[in-house]
Design a protein around this nucleic acid. Structure first.
Lengths: 346, 346
DNA sequence: TTGTAGGCGTTATCAG
DNA sequence: CTGATAACGCCTACAA
């Protein structure tokens, strides 16, 4: 930094002011300093900066890179954090790297707060030893130790059941990958909606190992084979995540069933694969941008006021109707028009 | 750290020794120091550490979280770096965050080297201003400024063509998403193999925008529709990435074609989706673990000896045969039995 | 094993 | 806007 100052012909502290966007430098000086910094390839040493600064402006984010939905949330966190003046520091949780390791690295960097995405472990111990606010994004339950941000999985499934009931379906089958962490909540939504609408329920549990990379897909394929073994196919099937729904859909199609003519299929997440034209899956969207922004807000709120109690933030989901659902083969008189995109504010 | 030392009843520098695994402390002391660190929730300030240390032991990694194959490479980089004594620092490149921004953040952390995954831009400018070794993982071309690690896309496609020829196919159609960065290389492999085996070539170019999130999938769906419009389907189709191949496969199946009975379909990448049982795609694997390890090795090599010239590392691919490819149908009659319907859907 | 001293690059404060 | 000075937490070197 001294080099840079000498090169421009100003003092070091003026360079420091410019580089951290602090007031007290003229526009012309700013320009010259920035130009010189670029020319010399200089960027301030963030280690030294964090050493000296009173409070950190870094948000630590723990995520699983290979997961299908987490990266989208990570991408959304960047602009949200940036808008509040925070930098983002990523730390991956993988098969060879535990949540604790990922958290420790971030703690070493003295992040102001931690956002943990899609964790299946209880973050209580982590929250206690962190000494910084912790936010759980995914499927945590409200507690006194850390903030929880999640979407309303139960209501989302209810939206799906309502959609199918409105189309005229009298029964809806629900594939339940039983070891999926948010599974219980979503299944409750299904049961509630089926009761409320007076539909015939049909629960198809598929056990398995959540840690297996292809558990969701295999669950869909397994469920499809089970349905194909029946004397008659149901008219509508819901799976509580898109990977399972897509595998279900493709396995059914491969065995001669037509979707949506023979049966309707719906998923949950609005993952990228649901949007491709060869799938075009009716699903429930939990907006990654909303989740990311809510997580950042929750973290910053407690950074600014550490005495506040952790909160639960539940985000609305929105039904996304595509061409994998339609009225059943012999539509009832009360069937309505399909194809509407119902959105609810976040 | 002073607190910790006082708590254990030893000197600060002994604590420092223990925390960085340096020799000079007894096993018993190590144990007590670690226990106390855990109890007090203490971890060394990496900023202060990097400020003091002569050389950095951090490897900066730039990647696109939402990409289908990059996260697997990122996961592989962790153990590879760890084995050589390096920490990993992640920086995301997204639609709202340019490669330059991602690189600048890492440079601010004074990483020892930079690994840039799947970049479509020329890294020359970045390599010049970085003052640290840069490694491009993906589809860079050899040059004097930075290392390149890639897999042998051309040979991989040749393996695929050979496999199909060995099965008895006399012609192979090749879907070419023309704006895909490694596309030219792979297409050359196709052309070479078709010539060498004396097959009938059939190039099906699909233009589009690489930046669009669903470009690969849409390319597959488009190609499928184009094939279905022909009077006769080819017996074998290759797409140079799995997303395209899967969309192609599903669109064909949805329109009544049987895979592999009517035609064989193959992809490239061995992405997670290719492995699911509802897809079970024959493909070419470029091992993410190998790519990650090679990238780390290339980076560390030049960190340890900055005078060495950047290199190109080309990794072998391996053919993964699954059930989407088979021998061509012997008779050519288009006799289709019940349950098969060709329809035009959206 | 302990103690002491110095310094890494930055920010903060204060008087000019 | 400049100049001077202290401090952040840690590592290194050296002597005890």
């Amino acid at each position: 930094m001294a080099d840079l100052a000498a090169h421009v012909g100003v003092s070091r502290q003026l360079v420091s002011l410019v580089l951290r966007d602090a007031p007290g430098a003229s526009a012309e000086t700013r320009r010259r300093v920035r130009a010189a910094a670029k020319e010399l390839g200089f960027s301030p040493h963030v280690g030294a900066r964090s050493l000296r600064r009173a409070r950190s402006k870094d948000l630590g984010v723990v995520f699983a890179p290979a997961h299908s939905t987490e990266p989208e949330i990570v991408e959304a966190i960047y602009p949200a954090a940036s808008a509040l003046g925070y930098d983002v520091m990523l730390s991956a949780q993988t098969s060879t790297r535990s949540t604790d390791e990922a958290v420790d690295e971030l703690l070493g960097h003295r992040c102001a707060a931690l956002v943990v995405i899609g964790s299946t472990v209880d973050l209580r111990a982590i929250a206690r030893r962190s000494h910084v606010p912790v936010v759980d994004v995914g499927f945590g339950r409200p507690n006194r130790y850390y903030d929880v941000v999640r979407s309303s999985g139960d209501l989302g499934i209810e939206q799906l059941v309502d959609h199918l009931a409105d189309l005229g379906h009298r029964g809806v089958t629900y594939v339940d990958p039983t070891s999926m962490p948010p599974g219980a909540l979503r299944r409750r939504g299904y049961e509630r909606a089926v009761d409320r609408r007076g539909l015939t329920g049909d629960l198809l549990p598929v056990p398995g190992d959540y840690a297996a990379a292809d558990y969701f897909s295999e669950a869909g394929a397994t469920a499809a084979r089970s349905l194909l073994d029946r004397p008659e196919l149901p008219t509508a099937v819901i799976a509580p995540n898109d990977d399972t729904a897509v595998a279900l859909l493709h396995t059914l199609i491969r065995h001669g069933a037509r979707v949506p003519e023979d049966l309707s299929v719906a998923g949950f997440d609005d993952a990228p694969i649901a949007r491709t034209s060869s799938v075009d899956l009716t699903t429930v969207r939990q907006d990654p941008a909303h989740l990311g922004a809510a997580a950042v807000r929750a973290a910053v709120r407690r950074v600014q006021n550490p005495d506040l109690h952790p909160r639960e933030t539940v985000l609305d989901t929105s039904l996304v109707v595509r061409t994998s659902t339609a009225a059943p083969r012999r539509p009832r008189p009360r069937s309505r028009t399909a194809g509407q995109h119902v959105e609810s504010a976040g």
